[in-house]
């Protein structure tokens, strides 16, 4: 049962990931990304990380991809350009593909981690455990993250504000 679900989810995820890369239209790409994320959320559930699955959906699917779609539409790139083959790109693509294949091969052949059963639940399954981790051992990064978000917010406001509104005297 779990095996079947895994195969299904991973196939979905991979197919959609390829979709993101190959999609001609950016909207299709975004939708593929959405589905891919849904697949990963499903995998998270399989790994008993319910909390993370929901956070993933909330943050990524709910906000990030929506933002992508929003911007794609705002910039009206319906036509979109698929990747045409030009020498430089072909080279890059070839290199990347080769990297992909060799990397996967190597991990498959040499990266065996041993097929042991799961040892623990992982903190992602229990909200409480997760929160305790965040607010004790990792409190400092959480605080820093707050600053990061503040800075990002300020920056976004600054960058996207219309230029004519900027007060030169300020």
């Amino acid at each position: 049962m779990e095996q079947i679900a895994f195969i299904f989810l991973s196939a979905l995820t991979l197919a959609c990931a390829l979709g993101v890369v190959l999609a001609k239209n950016a909207v299709n790409g975004a939708m593929c990304l959405l589905l891919c994320l849904a697949g990963i959320a499903g995998l998270f559930v399989q790994l008993h990380a319910y909390l993370l699955a929901f956070i993933l959906v909330l943050v990524y699917a709910g906000a990030v991809v929506a933002l992508f779609l929003f911007i794609i539409m705002l910039l009206d790139m319906q036509g979109g350009q698929a990747w045409r083959f030009r020498p430089a790109q072909a080279l890059a693509g070839f290199a990347a593909a080769a990297l992909l294949v060799t990397g996967l091969d190597l991990i498959a052949i040499r990266g065996r981690l041993g097929g042991g059963p799961p040892v623990g639940q992982g903190a992602g399954s229990s909200l409480k455990l997760y929160a305790y981790q965040l607010f004790t051992a990792y409190l400092l990064p959480v605080q820093v993250m707050g600053f990061l978000l503040l800075v990002a917010m300020l920056g976004i406001i600054l960058i996207s504000r219309r230029i004519s509104e900027a007060d030169p005297s300020k």
């Binding site: 990064p141 820093v144 993250m145 600053f147 990061l148 800075v151 990002a152 300020l154 920056g155 600054l158 960058i159 230029i163």
Partner: peptide, 19 residues
């Protein structure tokens, strides 16, 4: 986390003269 704070800050600083 620290690295990303640095980089995100720098993304904004780099594109600061947005006109």
């Amino acid at each position: 986390v620290a690295l990303e704070t640095v980089t995100v800050g720098l993304y904004i600083l780099v594109s600061y003269y947005r006109s």
